[in-house]
Design a protein around this nucleic acid. Structure first.
Lengths: 220, 220
DNA sequence: CATGGTAGGCTTACGCCGTAAGTCTGTCAA
DNA sequence: TTGACAGACTTACGGCGTAAGCCTACCATG
């Protein structure tokens, strides 16, 4: 009874509740809004109480990275490798767009959480099954993920709303004088005229890589 | 005469001296060691004096990014486009390895400094000259740079010294149980045996992309 | 029941951080 | 000689991560 009253008064803190709250805080305010004090406040608790469940802020960051990686669709064995890799990469791209702070965190630290290991293992497995050697699968996975992270981070930092890209280009054109930056200037003109939408496609680079890998797999 | 004495006592602070010192501080201690106080100390000055030459820390970060981008070899017009792009990407990769803090900074902010604009413009120009349309050149540049940033950041965060990779794999093998992560486990075994060196190559993904672009350029 | 260990809150305090606001001093033009 | 100004310096504020220690409610044991 006393326990009932108490647990009603405040749901007990757990490592899991801390990490999920951290994801929410970062989703809402960006990673720079994720301080131990604000995280604690979001849980109705004081900052130092968090340290009963996580060793330090680093552990919080590692934890939320693994939660996000756990949201990525992992390739099921047996499928057409190219379709499976395309799906996996697209899923990763979508998840990373959903948590805009996550890409930077993933690439800026060593991640060996269970979700990350499972993610890499399933990827290697899919490629192995398709006939790639261990070494080739390793390189292939690395090349695909370089594109996933590189493209996604660039897309997230693209300064303009794509739907207003033409307007933005018109506004910034004076900063790109034709004599000093002729090709950027010409590109901006095309965007303004609507000749070139200017938006980059995740699939463009991805298909180059997948096609190249298929050539290697089939021995040209 | 008095001026001589004074300027001998302390070389005058300038925006340029501030930014160059910031690159040195970051090169030596990592980006997290770059605080306004430490930067000022490196210049023999108090923190607030820096604000006479830069508006705030953001401007310092923008400035050192542009310095680093300025170190990248920019493609000269007229050359074989594939060789020029390969050289440009490799140069960028090398520069980013030389300033390990720079990649994260480049991809996590909007960069419109003169070196960055020049860099992008020269790249577009080289691709245009090779026959790519504006839109295709835009996509090609984005795909190549996604690889450059994605691969380099992953390489910089790789937790082991490549020369001791086999040892590291032996040490970490118990953390990768064969029943849960069979393919990662098998890969680690190959690294331990020396069958697979395990090191990733920048050129692997790059050549896939360049070959794919050449196919597109030549219309298959 | 009584009791004492413990889990998990809480408070306080320290040394960093970026930077707003204001002050002091040496130089140079009028 | 003077007065404006550039460019240093000092002080102070609120926020940060977290070390150290305290307080209270629970539970197992007697």
């Amino acid at each position: 009874m006393a326990r009932t009253r108490d647990s009603r008064r405040r749901a007990p803190l757990t490592r899991d509740r801390v990490l999920r709250a951290a994801v929410r805080v970062a989703d809402k305010g960006g990673i720079e809004a994720l301080s131990m004090r604000k995280l604690a406040a979001a849980l109705g608790v004081e900052a130092m109480s968090l340290y009963n469940h996580v060793a330090n802020k680093e552990e919080v960051l590692d934890g939320i990275v693994d939660i996000v990686v756990g949201e990525i669709d992992v390739p099921a064995p047996g499928a057409d490798w190219k379709a499976a890799m395309r799906r996996r990469a697209t899923s990763a791209h979508e998840v990373l767009l959903r948590h805009p702070w996550a890409s930077m965190l993933i690439v800026s630290r060593v991640n060996v959480g269970p979700a990350m290991l499972r993610y890499v293992d399933a990827t290697l497995g899919c490629l192995r099954e398709a006939g790639f050697s261990h070494a080739m699968a390793d390189h292939a996975w690395n090349a695909i993920d370089s594109h996933v992270y590189g493209f996604t981070i660039q897309a997230l930092n693209f300064p303009f709303d794509p739907s207003q890209y033409a307007d933005a280009a018109r506004q910034f054109l004076p900063l790109i004088p034709a004599d000093r930056y002729p090709h950027l200037h010409a590109l901006a003109l095309q965007v303004i005229e609507g000749t070139h939408p200017g938006v980059h496609h995740f699939g463009f680079g991805l298909e180059l890589i997948l096609d190249g890998l298929e050539n290697l797999r089939a021995g040209r």
